[in-house]
């Protein structure tokens, strides 16, 4: 059992810790698993203590860009393509419709809004996906019951499936290195492959990461990955096993490192006891 040294921190009351942990053991998403593996204390702050933080500007840009890409893909799917003006309207709507407040510095919102739209324009200009081709699925929530393996139900959302390829959209401030990104996103990509196979009964033909990079001149970086191998699946299941066991032991130790500099729970972590 761990506790916050600062009792005034905004912790959601409601459910008991034991109940919350039991629920977390029942299902897991790739992002939740990645967070647990990255820093268990951060996981505890977010999912067990349920400390809420304002949405970051980067996350808001990312979700607004995602919303436009979803609209574009849905329109391609229905064979009713959208014009650039209509897409811009979708972007403006998504930007305004945030469920969580963002704390903007003076002049920051306008700047970020422009950045986001430039990313969208870059995608439409540089994307290799023909506008007339039809997707297999667009932003679809899926799940895989892995209880037969002694594991939780895996849940997730596939951004786009096109001709058997699972495509994931990402916004980033740095250009991804293809080899490194294959490794750093493996929990997510393997999870998507498991989810796709379970939901369709088919093996994916490949996985693609579409990174929209927020540079002075934005660019699109496509990283093509092969279908998930048996080894990768085993590795994912081992990591899920570690997740279940870690939650069972309530093993919420911090992982101090470079990543702490940008962690939203930095102050809470300093008070950890």
């Amino acid at each position: 059992m761990i506790a916050l040294a600062d009792p005034a921190a905004p912790v959601s009351p409601a459910a008991s810790e034991a109940k919350i942990i039991a629920d977390l053991q029942a299902t897991v998403s790739p992002s939740r698993l990645t967070l647990f593996l990255g820093c268990r204390l951060k996981f505890w702050f977010r999912y067990v203590a349920r400390i809420t933080k304002p949405k970051t500007a980067a996350l808001h840009v990312g979700s607004s860009v995602h919303a436009v890409l979803k609209a574009w893909n849905k329109a391609r799917w229905r064979q009713t393509p959208l014009t650039l003006t209509q897409l811009h309207e979708e972007y403006v709507k998504a930007w305004a419709e945030t469920e969580e407040p963002v704390q903007w510095a003076a002049g920051e919102e306008d700047q970020e809004k422009k950045t986001g739209w430039r990313l969208v324009e870059t995608y439409f200009r540089e994307s290799k996906i023909p506008p007339e081709s039809r997707p297999e699925a667009v932003e679809v929530p899926v799940e895989a019951d892995l209880h037969q393996h002694g594991l939780p139900t895996l849940i997730g959302v596939l951004d786009l499936v096109q001709a058997g390829r699972i495509i994931d959209f990402k916004t980033s401030s740095t250009t991804p290195n293809p080899e490194k990104v294959a490794h750093t996103t493996e929990v997510q990509t393997s999870s998507y492959a498991v989810l796709y196979r379970e939901a369709t009964g088919r093996r994916e033909t490949g996985i693609e990461l579409h990174h929209l990079v927020k540079l002075k001149n934005p660019k699109l970086v496509l990283t093509a990955l092969p279908p998930m191998s048996d080894l990768q699946q085993t590795r994912l299941f081992r990591l899920m096993e570690a997740y279940v066991e870690g939650l069972e032991r309530q093993d919420f130790v911090p992982s101090p490192g470079m990543q702490c500099a940008s962690c939203e729970f930095f102050n809470e972590c300093r008070l950890f006891c």
Binding site: L146, Q148, R197
Partner: peptide, 15 residues
């Protein structure tokens, strides 16, 4: 046959 849940499906996309 349907997928067994660990990724080994029947290859035709329909259960």
């Amino acid at each position: 046959h349907p997928s067994n849940g660990n990724g080994n499906g029947n290859g035709n996309g329909h259960r």
